[in-house]
């Protein structure tokens, strides 16, 4: 959910861009992280953990903990809490340890 009005802050958002998450198109703003754009769309599950196959999301949001790894434009293990969103990005939830160039349909 995006905050429209805030008592202290004004949010200056960049240009609107489109990206694909697990095959579906979403919108976000340039300059925000992939994690922010996904959260704005209500998506909090980023991947499946490698051994226990548990859903995993964000924990630290500043690139410290590696909880948020996803496959971005075919590259696995991208920490999407610091990776900035760009027009046309293809983001996929990651299963296990991530496979390079995983097949996308």
């Amino acid at each position: 959910m995006r905050i429209e009005q805030h008592p202290i802050l004004e949010f200056r958002r960049g240009k609107k861009v489109k990206f694909i998450f697990d095959g579906k198109e979403y919108e976000g703003y340039e300059g925000e992280t992939i994690a922010a754009a996904l959260h704005a769309a209500g998506i909090r599950v980023m991947r499946e953990s490698p051994v226990l196959h548990r859903p995993r999301g964000l924990f630290c949001a500043i690139g410290n903990c590696s909880s948020c790894l996803m496959t971005v434009n075919g590259e696995p293990n991208v920490r999407i809490c610091t990776e900035k969103l760009r027009e046309g990005m293809v983001v996929n939830s990651q299963k296990g340890k991530g496979v390079l160039y995983e097949k996308r349909s």
Partner: peptide
């Protein structure tokens, strides 16, 4: 489940709940 600082980043930097 997040670190408090992580939520602060989402909310106060990106304006997302």
């Amino acid at each position: 489940i997040y670190g408090a600082g992580a939520v602060q980043t989402l909310v106060n930097v990106y304006g997302i709940l």
